[in-house]
Design a binder for these strands. Sequence first.
DNA 1: TAATCTACCAAACACTTGTTAGGGAAGGCT
DNA 2: AGCCTTCCCTAACAAGTGTTTGGTAGATTA
Lengths: 216, 216
Amino acid sequence: MPKSSQSSKSSKSSKSSKKTTMTAAPERRGELLATAAEVFAAQGYNATTVRRIADEAGMLAGSLYYHFDSKESMVDEILSTFLNELWAGYDEVLAAGLGPRETIEALVTQSFKEIDRHRAAVAIYQKEARHLAAQPRFGYLADSQVKFERAWLGTLERGVAAGVFRADLDVRLTYRFVRDTVWVAASWYRPGGQHSPEEIARQYLSMVLDGVAVRS
Amino acid sequence: MPKSSQSSKSSKSSKSSKKTTMTAAPERRGELLATAAEVFAAQGYNATTVRRIADEAGMLAGSLYYHFDSKESMVDEILSTFLNELWAGYDEVLAAGLGPRETIEALVTQSFKEIDRHRAAVAIYQKEARHLAAQPRFGYLADSQVKFERAWLGTLERGVAAGVFRADLDVRLTYRFVRDTVWVAASWYRPGGQHSPEEIARQYLSMVLDGVAVRS
DNA sequence: TAATCTACCAAACACTTGTTAGGGAAGGCT
DNA sequence: AGCCTTCCCTAACAAGTGTTTGGTAGATTA
């Protein structure tokens, strides 16, 4: 997926000289979404101009509107695609009938895999979800957040009741703690680094579950 | 400090009818910065127009330029003021000569107090710091981040060497873990809630240090 | 009372923004 | 060949942006 930059000035550079077969129809859309996601994640949604995205994709601003009908529909598609895949994985975990601790472990591991696959989308979600959710078009963001809380908080409460999680902590605080520790990782995580998603998940789980202090 | 909202439409509402003494000169600036910070934190810096800020402050957009010479200088002042106060507290903690664990505890507690005092500024910092730091004007953001890492990472390494923190974890990962879990709290923390900053710090420390799982 | 200062308004400026309309080159299909 | 579809460019538009300039009511000072 060649989505990298090509300086900036020459806007009439690659017109038809790149390939012999000419990229297939539905692929191009995905490529453009990927570059858009990358720019959105790096600069922020509002700070990103459609001209910047087009530039990064090697075309002009207006040409984007052949593939998408608005800038807003780009983030929409980026975020909804991500959330769909995310919940596909989550639902599978939640339906597996695991114990509370095992469920948390599986959810965390699954989350880091999603961060690995959709790093840009996660970063966008983190930064923009709050004020995008205000618009009715992005109502599914709020819905997802509710489902999210239900899944995690429910599992934690189940764990407290079962005696595997500490009962002396505010469960809601614990929920936010666990949730945040997982997802903020997207702000610094870079795929292809020294740690695989599974390895990071393992260490995060070790810290969250057992703490960073040495047992006395 | 009455910086709250006053509906929206009437922009010629409070002209001189609020006080008898007429707010003293340097106070007004602080009030305006507070409302600006609130809007920036809620909507995001780029998504916030100066007209919106002015509206929230009960005046017109151009009038802001009597107090500030640009929108950028507003965030600048908001962030630098916050960071100055933050480091005043941090430096005091770091100079106290505490042990590694006690230093971490003090830093976390101090951080939550700063979140309590500068909630909006912290939220802005979290969202915008990364791409603001690119501009030379905001070079102090990068400087602060370096100092930050030095302080926290150094303390953690000292703790590992002293045997009070686990040695089987990637220290850099632990650093990001601790750092992020503390500061993202600003995204959901609301002053005047059920938990005081000290109480939240206590529970966070308990989770980070000892974990959420029951000791077996 | 006159001069000055403070804090704002009114109105505009130059520029950037997302978006649109019409056109055209290249390949596939009949 | 001719037609059609795909994908992009050129050129513009209208709305919104940060910012500037000149003015002015009211308090302060002389």
